[in-house]
């Protein structure tokens, strides 16, 4: 990744114009030409340095429900439970963390009611309690990291 790639990533984490020639606009700000910008983006996506290039949605506005869920799993059961939990299509991502609460996953469903149903199904299947911790308030939604 060279200097221009980094400039492109930092610039495009801030947004992308909605206009008839958006790549040309951004290219001009970055001091390169439109074709170079498009080709660099293509490479960054192909090499998987970027996961995607497009819209970030506000999921609740779109009509969905989310929650962060924690579990405390005994070491000997961890593999079994993680397989069972990851088997639910509603589990978006799941992290093992270094804590007594060692499993943390995000549920994404089409309704709040479905969050409760999936949590109940997970408790029944795994034999472990779930601790549902939905967002109450959001203080920052940047998701922006500078590449240097």
């Amino acid at each position: 990744m060279d200097k221009l790639d980094k400039k492109i990533i930092n610039r495009l984490q801030k947004g992308f114009p909605i206009s008839d020639s958006p790549y040309a606009e951004v290219a001009e700000q970055l001091g390169c030409d439109e074709a170079t910008l498009i080709q660099r983006l293509q490479s960054l996506l192909q090499e998987k340095q970027l996961t995607r290039f497009g819209p970030m949605y506000h999921a609740e506005r779109m009509g969905g429900a989310f929650s962060l869920v924690a579990m405390k799993i005994a070491a000997e059961d961890f593999e079994r439970v993680s397989e069972q939990v990851n088997g639910f299509a509603e589990v978006a991502h799941n992290y093992q963390r270094e804590h007594e609460f060692n499993m943390w996953f995000v549920l994404a469903t089409e309704s709040k009611q479905r969050i409760d149903e999936v949590n109940a199904e997970i408790e029944q299947l795994t034999g472990y309690a779930v601790y549902n911790m939905p967002k109450l308030e959001e203080f920052y939604i940047g998701l922006e990291l500078q590449v240097s």
């Binding site: 990533i9 340095q49 970027l50 996961t51 819209p55 970030m56 506000h58 939604i141 990291l145």
Partner: peptide, 20 residues
């Protein structure tokens, strides 16, 4: 959709791990 915040922004989504 952007003004009404259905879309938070357009742009890139980075892979933290691959970026170091």
């Amino acid at each position: 959709l952007l003004d009404d915040e259905f879309i938070k922004r357009m742009g890139v989504v980075v892979r933290h791990h691959e970026l170091g």
